[in-house]
């Protein structure tokens, strides 16, 4: 019974949003004051973890979290000394620009897998030299920008049934079932060289629920705390 109580405690205990940021090797220059930043609207996909553990996408949660993160990012940039303009990726899926946005998604996922994940690539060991290549200059020219800032949010929330099932299975001594979780990453790309100059991953605390404005604000505060902007 002690084990069950301990599990219940873990379930409802509050923890802080944790972040883990990385800067490009060999001191890539920080954006100068007045640098023009292209803020790419966040790409967010959230799902509900059904009782038996299937991830079911929830379009309404994704939409509200997307809007909340976007508003919080804009507010965060407004406080800093940079000019910024926004890009809605839905308006730029065709041609070269669309390819660059997809390239960033692929590079971002690779960074998550190889610089943060369990997989250790020999060529990336203790190095952070990811780049999208100089082809990104097209993005800078098109939108008059020096840097692009991307944000991604992914995650799942347990359904009520899932939580009950988790506690029940724990009481039966059948082990722990995953309850879902949310994370977001942001990356800052130099639009002259293509280098990823800064990358940050945040895992949500229960108080940072990006589906409401306050939670999204907490998320963005954590992510942008030490951003070189």
């Amino acid at each position: 019974m002690f084990r069950a109580l301990a599990l219940c405690f873990c379930l409802f205990a509050a923890a802080c949003t944790t972040t883990d940021q990385k800067f490009a090797d060999r001191g890539a220059p920080r954006p100068a004051p007045g640098a023009r930043i292209l803020l790419v609207e966040p790409d967010v996909q959230l799902s509900v973890l059904t009782m038996a553990g299937l991830d079911e996408p929830r379009a309404d949660w994704s939409k509200s979290a997307q809007a909340n993160l976007d508003a919080a990012m804009q507010a965060a940039l407004r406080q800093r000394s940079h000019q910024f303009r926004e890009l809605d990726p839905a308006t730029a899926q065709e041609g070269r620009i669309g390819q660059l946005l997809r390239l960033h998604e692929a590079v971002g996922r690779s960074i998550l897998a190889f610089s943060y994940g369990q997989i250790d690539l020999p060529t990336k060991r203790r190095r952070f030299d990811w780049t999208l290549g100089e082809g990104v200059q097209a993005l800078g020219r098109q939108y008059d920008a020096d840097y692009a800032l991307f944000t991604y949010g992914r995650g799942s929330y347990s359904s009520g049934g899932r939580k009950v099932a988790m506690v029940g299975m724990a009481l039966l001594g059948a082990g722990i079932m995953p309850l879902g979780g949310q994370e977001a990453f942001a990356s800052l790309v130099d639009l002259r060289t293509g280098r990823v100059v800064w990358f940050n991953v945040a895992k949500a605390a229960p108080t940072a629920d990006m589906r409401d404005p306050e939670g999204a604000q907490a998320f963005v505060d954590a992510i942008m705390k030490d951003a070189p902007l």
Partner: peptide, 23 residues
């Protein structure tokens, strides 16, 4: 379908797949 249904969620995921397919 409404956004807060299982079907709405599946549609949203497919909309993204369609954007990728189109490119």
């Amino acid at each position: 379908p409404a956004d807060n249904t299982d079907e709405g969620g599946i549609w949203a995921a497919m909309d993204k797949a369609e954007i990728d397919a189109r490119a």
